[in-house]
Amino acid sequence: MISLSQIWALFKKDLLLEIRQQYTFYGILLYVGATIFVIYMAMEQTESQVWNGLFWIIQLFICINAVAKSFLQESRGRMLYFQALLSPQNFVLAKLLFNSLLMVVMSAISLGLFMLFLGNPVQKMAEFFGLVLLGGWGLSLVFSFLAAIAAKAQQSAAIMAILGFPLIIPQLLMLMKVSNTFFSKSNPEILTTVVLLAIIDLFVIILAIILFPFLWKD
């Protein structure tokens, strides 16, 4: 069922589209920049706790905006064409892969901008950067699947937020808790939480593979 060449072809198609019509990429980039600039204007000085909370909330909103259009951009005709050619599993895996890449890039950029504008309270940079990538990846997986649901319901990003916020709370809490430990030099035990986060991500991929075929055809 799952064929790597099909996934790769679809992934390349999405990437090429993104490179040729760059307005979405720059649109999200502008969103990232503008949001962080607003926060910079609003906050005089940020404590590390506040910095952490704001950072992950911003990640959440960036993710919703970055991922929302991924299933909506396929026109009706093109979807029919895909349905004739591909298996749903490959289609959803390609989308997850592309959104993961997009969100990982956006996470890295927003981290850079955050540090530039709001200062850098992080003590363990390498670990924190790794966690940001893992967190961005996890957020993108959950919201990609919800984007598929929202696209089928012909709804905007608003319904994605309603559907997604309750689901993402535990993951966000775990991310904030782990990243809080990187603001000091001490070394508390965080490995289990990080492993748990990775397991949740795999779990989402499996659920998407199982459930997407039911969303696929009308």
Partner: peptide, 13 residues
């Protein structure tokens, strides 16, 4: 169909 998919996905979470 769609709400059944969401129901399962959300409950699994």
């Amino acid at each position: 169909r769609i709400s059944a998919v969401y129901n399962i996905f959300a409950f699994a979470f």
